[in-house]
Design a protein around this nucleic acid. Sequence first.
DNA 1: TATTCCGATAGTGAC
DNA 2: GTCACTATCGGAATGAG
Lengths: 307, 307
Amino acid sequence: MRGSFQALRTIPFQTSIRPKSTKGRAKRPKMASQNVASADDFGEHVESTSVPGKQSTERFPRSSRPNAFTELMRHKPTAQEADKPTQKTVFAGRDGLAAYTIDPESFPPTRVVYHNERFVVINDLYPKASIHLLLLPRDPIKNVMRPQDAFDDAQFLEDCRQEEKKVRATVASELRRRFGKHSASDRPRIEAMESDDPPDELPPGRDWAQDVMSGIHANPSMSHLHIHVLSKDMVSEPMKKRNHYLSFTTDFLVGLEHFPLAKDDYRRRYTHFPEDMLCWRCGENFGNKMSKLKEHLAMEKEQWIRE
Amino acid sequence: MRGSFQALRTIPFQTSIRPKSTKGRAKRPKMASQNVASADDFGEHVESTSVPGKQSTERFPRSSRPNAFTELMRHKPTAQEADKPTQKTVFAGRDGLAAYTIDPESFPPTRVVYHNERFVVINDLYPKASIHLLLLPRDPIKNVMRPQDAFDDAQFLEDCRQEEKKVRATVASELRRRFGKHSASDRPRIEAMESDDPPDELPPGRDWAQDVMSGIHANPSMSHLHIHVLSKDMVSEPMKKRNHYLSFTTDFLVGLEHFPLAKDDYRRRYTHFPEDMLCWRCGENFGNKMSKLKEHLAMEKEQWIRE
DNA sequence: TATTCCGATAGTGAC
DNA sequence: GTCACTATCGGAATGAG
């Protein structure tokens, strides 16, 4: 299982016109940069919001506006490949996560990032950040408990923590893959990797793990237990509503390190969001002005990437 | 002036394929009923919302859905004739009524119903009922006063009352013209008029004057004094918002008989609408459900006409 | 705090 | 309550035989 996970983590950017995988630290062919530029250039806002699965194909969200060149270069997804809501997921309402835990194989690799006996990891159907994965425990008992109750079980909690570590590493790795070449602190590593004579030991580069958040929502709407693992930029097309933003930027998001919660911890019964929306990066108060906040977050994302 | 007004009142249904006017009680030719059926049939929802002016041409609001026959029969308005907002009116904001009082001749006859030295009567640009006229005093001093203050002047008030009587009669006459043939109580009169041997004295028919409302808004938004004169059905496409409805169905609408107001009358400083919306005809409470109310009002209009 | 659809609510800008 | 535009806010349904 760990071997499979490792392989996954190192799967580079994929399109149908690239080999399906390259090995761990292998030097990328220079021509790969063309593909990278066509789809990963955040300046063009065309990066995919999903982490590639084992046989994934690249896709673009509807909000993408590829220019003429990228339009020519990119692989047009077929209806089957398209990573859209399906009858099984969207129309199942609050039980929409059940199908993943029961039959992960029935979903396209763009949706299910990986799965093992105890967990399924998927790309959130409505990502609220550039990268947004869900870690779904498959245990059908724990599955339908409120997370605050399920995590009273020490063993289950520990299992989730272990798996969450892997998912966090996946997100960090994906951040580097997508944005590393725009990051000042990642540049030494990138340049070493792409040099004609790469060193045996790469420079560490940027610690993207610091830009990963995770935890459960104190009052989830979906009935199956899901652990959010996402980048902290909060920029995505489906990020539309006040509660979307606040659910990841307040203590409504409860990290696994807080569990088990005390019996009287208020996060066992969180009710609503009285708070203003504050930019996660600069702290500016946007009150309830979602449109203004979204513009601002897009700007902050660029700055954040360039760090 | 009175002669001109009388002529106006008796101008029958008009299209470009009919003579511009017929005299007072003159017997209508039978073929006129074809025109009446084509444009006045409320069952087809094709009546114009505007009262014809002296040289008016018939028009249809965008919401009209004429059937194939009426489509063939009717005169298609040109862009110039079209009774749409103009730069002069709409873009003048709160002063949009000024232009009518200053230069009524510059407007098409579909807009200005009539004018004399002291008053201009127009079709409301956004009618809130099947028929909705505005009586505009031209006096440039009184003009820009709040109506509650302007009507403290007894002579001005009396002048407005006299003119309002005429406008109310115009609206009543227009109601008969449009809806009389669908009205049970108006039928004896209609049948007498259309008979081969009409009596010298027509039966009185329905008293449409009872279906006319008028008055000023206690807190008008438009800066020029305007007296609303309208049918009580409250059915129109521009009737969209809660305040539209409540402004005509509560004591926010103040009839001229109430003036001059006592110095401390609350209607001198009306603030807001705390009220639910009640159907003017059956009293049903629609709370703040505007869509539901609109559906209901359309049904009530049909019943009301058939009375 | 699943989304989507519809509709009600609120602020602004027009000149 | 001038409208029109944008956006925010608020409830209800969401599947299927």
